[in-house]
Design a protein around this nucleic acid. Structure first.
Length: 559
RNA sequence: GCUCCUAUAGUUCAGUGGAUAGAACACAACCUUGCGGAGGUUGAGACCGGGGUUCAAAUCCUCGUAGGAGCACCA
């Protein structure tokens, strides 16, 4: 519609169509118009007041197709849609395109999105849920816009934290049975950190184990490492199934360790890296990026060198147009260092990488960390939320079979959690208040699911299959609903460009809110306009389902 | 100390340089003989401070202040 407006005023204002399209706004209220063109910036060159320009334009231009009239309102030129026709076309389009509605084709690009990145032998905590939800959502948005997405995971299965775990297990927990329970696995790590902080000398024992893991010299340690690594990985399958994420490739640090060391040697030869205090570093001071340490002074390899090898491998294995790495913003500087190093070593195509940072998940009491164990584990967290959800569900409908109840409770919980993680700007810290996340009222995932289920319930009850419909005089809230539905595809594009699913989350909430207002104001089944309203309700269902789907949230037909 | 990020109702968040700064929670008052009350309606309540750019600033720049993160062998 913006394009039609641009065409109609292009000649009079001497701007290109796209310039005009960018200027067009949506007025604060529908009573003022459906689109607005502000005339301020033309004022200087035309040497007229913006008010006058608006008046002149109104009389000069031709009414664009699909509009019923134009109004000059102060410095704004306001366009009013032919709302009936607009509603009709839009609803037809939504009902025809269904789960494709809102998508636009951006060309077949191949994009790799690396996210989640839990480490073996450590907790999968609330922060990981944020990264996983964000990555999955970005992946879905890209796919929706026609891109070929490769979901990648990358886990630290070697390195100091593993050495700590194995050290602690052998020394203090060797009688306990090994199991694929993330809570137990993480408790050993937490214990290790605690014991290490009590006695500095233990670090030497851990260092020795770290060397043994890296050069695989100790059979018993190697066996224990393999076994526990496997159990950790196994403990994630349930988590990813529940979160609705499936990876196409799972990289491990152990697979790039050797190549990381080789790259480091090449960098030493090329004088890009150098020795310093026994360690191998890349000096990036002249870019004000400090130094990047590649090898420890005992010769063992660090995450940085492994990341260089990983980047090389991704480029070799896939023909990528883009490669995103979704990781917490505490690594902002590190990624600048890493990318700069890739540039210095002239790694081909290294420009395609970008770091998508996200903020921390904090609690009102303070930061959480998997080192101290001051965090909430995925399993504890989901159990807590599910039990609450099951109780709420039971209060409402008494006769749900237990299986079904558990299924719905889990779906509602995942929706609540994902929505609370995605509704905020990714780069800002989330202050996670359990009471609010568990609250099913207001701006929450369950509210959205509830709205969807209500819409579904109307349609089910109506048992009405007539395909044609005519658009009656529209109630104000119906116009609002139609207009909101029409904005979906633009919102998706914006979310894509800004790597920001919160735009879709906020849109979903606004849409559901308008639907609920509509629902209260306009009877559907017992209305003369039944056929139209049913189509409108159905359109709402489709669009809400599409937008929640992009957030990785599954809808429920009944709650 | 240096670098980066953030600052909007009591609280948690929206807000692409444009019309009256939006919600949610909490608080107060209402709405159920209506398609699901996890809902709706109404009310009270906010742009950290000082400069600047602009016809127009919560939004851009700058200096402060406050909070967070990072800064050599964790990832």
């Amino acid at each position: 519609m913006k394009k039609l407006i641009a065409e109609s005023i292009k000649k009079e204002v001497g701007l290109t169509e796209s310039e005009i399209e960018n200027m067009i706004e949506i007025p604060p209220s529908s009573a003022m118009g459906d689109f607005a063109f502000p005339c301020f910036s033309l004022s200087k060159q035309l040497r007229k007041s913006p008010q006058q320009i608006a008046l002149d334009l109104k009389s000069k231009i031709k009414l664009p197709k699909g509009f019923s009239y134009i109004e000059a309102s102060g410095p704004y030129l306001n366009f009013f849609l032919n709302r009936k026709k607009f509603a009709e076309n839009l609803i037809k389009k939504i009902l025809k395109e269904k789960d494709k509605f809102g998508s636009s084709y951006l060309g077949k690009k191949r994009v790799m999105i690396e996210f989640s990145q839990p480490n073996t032998h450590k907790a999968f905590h609330v922060g990981h849920i944020r990264g996983t939800s964000l990555g999955e959502s970005l992946a879905r948005i890209s796919e929706f816009l026609g891109e070929k997405v490769i979901r990648a995971n990358y886990s630290g299965d070697t390195g100091m934290h593993i050495a700590k775990w194995i050290w602690c297990y052998r020394k203090y927990h060797s009688k306990e049975e090994l199991k694929d329970d993330e809570a137990w696995i993480s408790s050993i790590y937490v214990d290790a950190v605690k014991r290490l902080s009590e006695n500095q000398e233990f670090q030497n024992e851990v260092d020795e184990i770290n060397r043994k893991i890296e050069n695989k010299s100790d059979r018993e340690i190697n066996r224990l490492w393999k076994k526990t690594r496997k159990l950790s990985i196994k403990s994630w399958t349930r988590i990813y199934r529940e979160l609705g994420t499936k990876f196409d490739i799972h990289y491990f640090e152990s697979e790039v360790e050797k190549r990381g060391k080789e790259i480091t040697n090449e960098l030493l030869k090329k004088k890009i890296a150098k020795k310093s205090d026994g360690a191998v570093i890349v000096d990036l001071e002249k870019y004000s990026l400090g130094v990047l340490v590649l090898l420890r002074s005992d010769g063992t390899v660090l995450y940085s060198a492994k990341d260089l090898a990983l980047a090389e491998r991704k480029l070799r294995e896939y023909k990528l147009d883009k490669s995103l790495i979704v990781i917490g913003n505490e690594q902002d500087t590190y990624f600048k260092q890493l990318f700069k190093t890739m540039e210095l070593m002239k790694l081909k195509n290294s420009k395609i990488f970008s770091h998508i940072p996200f903020g921390m998940v904090r609690f009102p009491e303070g930061k959480m960390s998997s080192r101290t164990g001051d965090n909430i584990l995925y399993s504890d967290f989901i159990k807590d939320v599910s039990e609450f959800a099951a109780k709420r569900l039971q209060e409402r409908s008494l006769k749900i079979p237990k299986r079904e109840l558990e299924k719905r409770a889990l779906a509602v919980s995942i929706a609540a959690i994902k929505y609370s993680m995605l509704r905020q700007n990714p780069r800002k810290n989330i202050i996670f208040i359990k009471k609010d996340a568990l609250n099913f009222e207001g701006d929450t995932g369950p509210y959205l699911l509830y709205s969807y289920a209500r819409a579904n319930s109307i349609i089910k009850k109506s048992n009405f299959k007539k395909r044609t419909f005519f658009v009656p005089e529209l109630e104000p809230i119906e116009i609002e609903l139609v207009k909101k539905l029409s904005q979906f595809s633009e919102i998706v594009l914006n979310a894509y460009k800004n790597f920001n699913p919160s735009l879709i989350a906020n849109y979903s909430f606004e849409l559901a809110k308008i639907f609920n207002e509509f629902y209260h104001a306009c009877p559907v089944i017992h209305s003369e306009n039944k056929e139209f309203r049913l189509k409108l309700v159905n359109s709402f269902k489709i669009v809400l389902r599409n937008s929640l789907n992009l957030l990785g949230i599954k809808t429920l037909e009944e709650m």
